[in-house]
Design a protein around this nucleic acid. Structure first.
Lengths: 270, 270
DNA sequence: GTGTCGGGGG
DNA sequence: CCCCCGACAC
């Protein structure tokens, strides 16, 4: 089959976890790997280690200490002008051209603890960021550019994207205000949430499990925070492979010194 | 032969290096192990790991974050009242009874960078500490209790205790004022510096190499900061084994993630 | 260079 | 619980 596999993984420090990435890449062999929370300057990205994994092409948008996104690819990447989508200009977004479509990699703000934007500036920032995405993708829809959006959206939109819908309604990542904002972005760009196209809505899917839980695996109090969306032009190719085309590598969460997020991979037919 | 082996090692965080200690103990098999810079509270000492090394008896004097000394022993230890020898009451000294003698474990202050006590309070503290030791051991000499003093004295007293006598004369650890103060302590208690009894004065001995030097081994800019002293009652037993009775395990400095100090062991005949 | 800590952030 | 940082100490 001719296609391309696209992976997204919040790696929570790429310098610390480059060996884990190598071990996972040896198994999963993604063509394009989108990372979030690399937590380093662009020049500190461990490019040599990634070259040894077989990646030749890079697009890195780092910053000191926090946030930071990176794309490592086995296919050539086309540079595109930076967009200024983050209200605080943090390194939370990048885009490249690859394999004939435009790939966006996001690390949407977590938003802090208190779900009231009036008293929690982090949550206000998250909502502003989401507003900006809505108008940005609304403005781009008419051009019909094939788009793939991936990343840590820090929102688990649907009931079975969290371990307990009721208990998380007031917990940031699953509050109605951010879930609605995310849905408006999706509709503005007429994006498909590929995982939910391929996996029934009543089936639990998680990509993140808190570090804080002691027996996180037994408790299984996860959330689906990491997403892969495609614009209408790519819908059919995204779902062509069926359910097997979308994989959450949750076993990786059990490795030594893991990230709190699991990698998610889509096999996109081309 | 009937005797007891006594080790001293500045471990620079015992929690981090318990595995290294275990590897070394498996080889060196000391009867009594005196540690400095354990860098933890007494209750955080990894006693279980030390039990697995064969130590059944402990005397621990820790404090939060810095300093801290501990004795782990295969022979029973006798508790003795704490002395208040540190002018700042930091966890820099402990004593126990063992095998018929009194064992003192010291972590003498490093003293900072500027070798002028008038402008460097750390160096003033070091000199005060040394003064206190002089009067303390002067007061104890008449009783003729057999004493063993070990630890990180943070002083390299003799010319061949440093890689360059001339270049270190104004570097704290080898300045005349602290070397003289150490010599006064030695004379107050009529102690023998066992390593220098057994190894000729014109032979270099180092027990510490800075982390900062890139190629510390090739450069070999070491210092002898770690010492084993005995009171006159134990002199003959300390030197009975000859030069082989005193060993600096400098190979340990080459291990992964080492302490900057090497362990020093004396085989004491009894 | 290599530890500790405390603070910010998740 | 785990990551970053900056301060402090050696």
């Amino acid at each position: 089959m001719s296609g391309i596999s696209i992976a997204t993984w919040n790696i929570n420090s790429v310098r610390l976890r480059a060996p884990s990435v190598a071990a996972w890449v040896a198994e999963a062999d993604p063509d394009v790997l989108c990372l979030q929370e690399i937590k380093c300057l662009s020049e500190q990205f461990p490019e040599e280690a990634f070259r040894e994994m077989g990646f030749r092409h890079f697009h890195i948008r780092g910053q000191k200490g926090m946030h930071g996104v990176a794309i490592a690819s086995k296919l050539p990447l086309e540079d595109l002008p930076d967009e200024d989508l983050c209200p605080r200009s943090e390194a939370r977004h990048q885009r490249v051209g690859v394999a004939g479509f435009e790939l966006h990699n996001f690390y949407i703000p977590a938003g802090g603890d208190e779900p009231d934007p009036a008293i929690n500036p982090r949550f206000a920032h998250k909502l502003e960021f989401l507003d900006k995405l809505e108008s940005y993708f609304a403005g781009r829809a008419a051009a019909k550019t094939p788009l793939v959006l991936v990343g840590d959206f820090n929102i688990a939109p649907y009931e079975h994207d969290v371990w307990s819908h009721k208990q998380l309604l007031k917990v940031i990542s699953h509050t109605p205000v951010e879930v609605d904002a995310l849905e408006r972005i999706r509709q503005a760009g007429r994006f498909s949430d590929v995982a939910r196209e391929l996996i029934p809505m009543d089936e639990k899917i998680y990509t993140w499990w808190s570090y804080r839980a002691k027996d996180w695996k037994a408790a299984n109090r996860g959330r689906r925070l990491d997403h892969i969306w495609v614009s209408p032009e790519l819908h059919d190719q995204a779902v062509a492979g069926g359910r097997e085309a979308l994989k959450v590598w949750d076993n990786v969460r059990s490795w030594e010194k893991p990230s709190d997020h699991a990698p998610v991979v889509l096999q996109l037919e081309l």
